[in-house]
Design a protein around this nucleic acid. Sequence first.
RNA 1: GCCGGGGUGGUGAAAUUGGUAGACACGAGGGACUUAAAAUCCCUUGCCGAGUUACAUUGGCGUGCGGGUUCGAUUCCCGCCCCCGGCACCA
Length: 798
Amino acid sequence: MHRKFDHQAIEQKWQKRWEDSGIYATPPSDTNQEKEYVLLEFPYPSGNLHIGHWFGFAVPDIYVRMRRMQGKRVFFPIGFDAFGLPAENAAIKHNLNPKEWTDANIAHMTDQLRSMGNAFSWDALCRTSDPEYYRWTQWMFTQFFEKGLAYQGVGVVNWCPSCNTVLANEQVVNAACERCGAVVLKKEMLEWKLRITEYADRLIDDLEELDWPEAIKESQRRWIGRSAGAKISFKLSTGETLEVFTTRPDTLFGVTYMVLAPEHPLVEQYKDIITNWADVEAYVAATRQKDEQDRLDDTKEKTGVKLEGVTATNPANGAKVPVYIADYVLAGYGTGAIMAVPAHDERDFAFAKKFELPVISVVYQDGGEIRPTSNMQANPGSGRLKNSGEFDGMNSEEAKKTITEKVGGTLTNTYRLRDWSVGRQRYWGVPIPIVYDPEGKPHAVPQEHLPWLLPTDVDFRPTGEPPLAKSAELKERTEKIFGAGWRPAVETLDTFVDSSWFFLRYLDPHTTETFATLEHQKDWMPIDLYFGGAEHTTMHLLYSRFWQKALFDLGVVTAAEPYTRRINRGLVLGPDGNKMSKSKGNVIDPDEQVKRLGADTVKMYLAFMGPYGEVTNYPWDLGGIAGIRRFLERAYGLTDHIAESEPETTTRLLHKTIDKVFRDINAYKFNTAISALMVFVNHVEKEGVTDDSYAIFLRLLAPFAPHLAEELWEMAGNTTSVHQEAWPQADSALLTEDTVTIGVQINGKHRGEIAIAANASEEEAFAAAKANTKIQERLTGEVRKIIYVPGRILNIIV
RNA sequence: GCCGGGGUGGUGAAAUUGGUAGACACGAGGGACUUAAAAUCCCUUGCCGAGUUACAUUGGCGUGCGGGUUCGAUUCCCGCCCCCGGCACCA
């Protein structure tokens, strides 16, 4: 019978008891239990937990709790990604300190997190803004600096005019700032970068080993964008050589012109040689003017200017070809210059048509020559060579190698990935632990001076000038330690740096000797399962893989890859099917729901919406959550149906439920696991259940409704925690039925059902079918064939 | 344009990956209880039709569209259409 329960009293009671007894604290190393490190993307302390946090944190807790009951030694920590711009912006708005704002939010959100009732290892909690955390962020950065992995260089950066800071390439989405949506500008400046490009191959190749959804792997591969080709040098009429990157060295004989990116250094250098310099200069200036948005808006009509007075010589056949600048060639990719083969590249073809340049076809396909003419398209396919001298008839693949060798080029890979820009011209972050000597040469702050504290005497309102530059304390500190004329770096680190190693600090949150002992790393790393959102595919997930590899090369971590398995989840939408937002007024407040219906209900409802681990968006359904609450009330009232004995159907169903709940949780299909529990409750309400079976049911319920299951477990007379009980084992003998109902088809059409022994022979099944009047009526003609799949189907062909 | 993931009732979704399509839940309709409402309980609920006073019963269609393979297709193959996410002149 359905029965109300006081969820607030129950939840408070058990949350306190679990904490007092410390049953979820980080498990000690010295046991024979198998370890399992389950990680969540830690929250940014924005002020309030939203439904997305619940979806992301409370649902994986189901998996964690089952694994614990199965005897695994599970580590399930939580923390805060506490540095970042919102704190600064909020502080400016409310006229307080970013630290105060952040700390207050953390305190509040910690309470909210506790109300979830997750099996968190609270003892491992850490926050990236604590000096004891960021001293290690800084230490790692200095190690990278010493190895040349962190460097400062002048380049064109992405500048967000609204956030007043540099952004990494990954943080620019559709030419706009990933955080605030402002259109990103190009700006030339000195910036701090990490050489992630040096790890490009490993970041691609090591994906093979990972048990990740293919979609994420593919996105990372495409983001890194490795392409195999060759670097080939062309002699210029000026005497210098021009190096180009091409994926098609086999088409070298088809080169009819060259193109440099407008920003290419040679352009400026040839100022006095180029006879139409005014035109060239104007084009370069126009390109510089264009921001990212303009480039996207382009209709992709090709533009460019010929460099009059400069020609290039094709190393393959000595042909002299003109040289252009055009903005379809990007300064940041390859060598910033290309050899153009209009016959076999669509972009070159479009350009050649516009500027009336020759098109020479040098590749044809077997079984029919396809040659572009001025009215046709380029043919980018591979095939056999022609018009290529001694290489005629060779296939493209072989020719790529042979021709490259012949002209003294080198086969090489080129990547789309850019080095990771990590310096930020803002306040609330990790100060870059670098000081400059009087000559301006950068030096790492030595370990004994770490943490290199974030100064507090700072006006952090954004002016475009880094706030730390205004700190007298930082300046004095630097001079005091290093000497007169020394000055500190004034940028802070991108917060993606902080989150690139948080999972290591969880292992040893209080050690002052190191960021995490090797002993604990060996015990827990790599992370077995990482739950998170799809938006981090080419940001956090890529950065932290790189960071781990860089640490691995320093010999300070034990694993070359941080995350063995990854599950991406979808999004919870508002009841109207739109993304929740204050302006749409469709925001569901989890606190309100928890107060009204309980944490167990909210958690279970989120788990019931659909399969987890598929990036699908689920609208919040007010009626749906009421249904879950109803289910829990019925589970609560199940004691009314406890009897001395139970029918065999109940026992069998129980074992099927054990089996299904286990398999479904293991596959993150929490929705169908819950429906199996519902089926069991529906059945027991009619048929009754014994004490023993009821106790098993409570153990199955425990991961989904930890508070209620614990309460019922206690009400059933137990003094232990249900969460420390062993996970039930299904009796395989009870999983298979003796008799089954199977469908009967005639000519493939469903015509009825028969109940027969599970191991019935074809003859027996056919006999049973003939005994069925409905079937019999239809079996008029001669039976030509019988298809019988035991336990599944009987199909009679007449 | 390219890459990835999808399209199943009024809704969220199931379907042991070729074997009774729609489990479970929501919503809706009807009934019981109640002075009444809420809550709860029971029944019905893919669509269209036949049939009966009411049951019982029964036919056809149905997993985005069009083909194909198969005894049998939501599942496999071919060709389209649409939706969501990512990338976007990357040589």
